[in-house]
């Protein structure tokens, strides 16, 4: 199963990935990372289809897709 893995500390909370997930799985966390950004995360990674679009959209290579 494909699974998005977020490097939360690198995330700048721009939200670009949240708009491109075909399953609408990505949202910005209520929590803050040490840089003060609210990082992106996945609400249910079992539903990820591994389309890679979120990873490719991220300007900061925060998201890796593992299998």
């Amino acid at each position: 199963m494909p699974k998005p893995v977020f490097n939360t500390e690198r995330c700048k909370g721009c939200g670009l990935c949240t708009s491109v997930c075909v399953r609408n799985l990505i949202f910005l966390s209520e929590q803050f990372n040490s840089k003060g950004y609210q990082p992106a995360c996945c609400k249910d990674d079992t539903r990820c289809i591994g389309c890679l679009i979120c990873a490719r959209t991220c300007p900061d290579v925060v998201i890796e897709i593992h299998k």
Binding site: R10, K12, C14, G15, R56, T57, C58, P59, D60, V61
Partner: peptide, 15 residues
């Protein structure tokens, strides 16, 4: 980490 602002496309183009 890059110094680019959140959402800036430089990061995508670099990649």
């Amino acid at each position: 980490p890059t110094h680019y602002c959140p959402g800036c496309y430089h990061g995508i183009i670099h990649r």
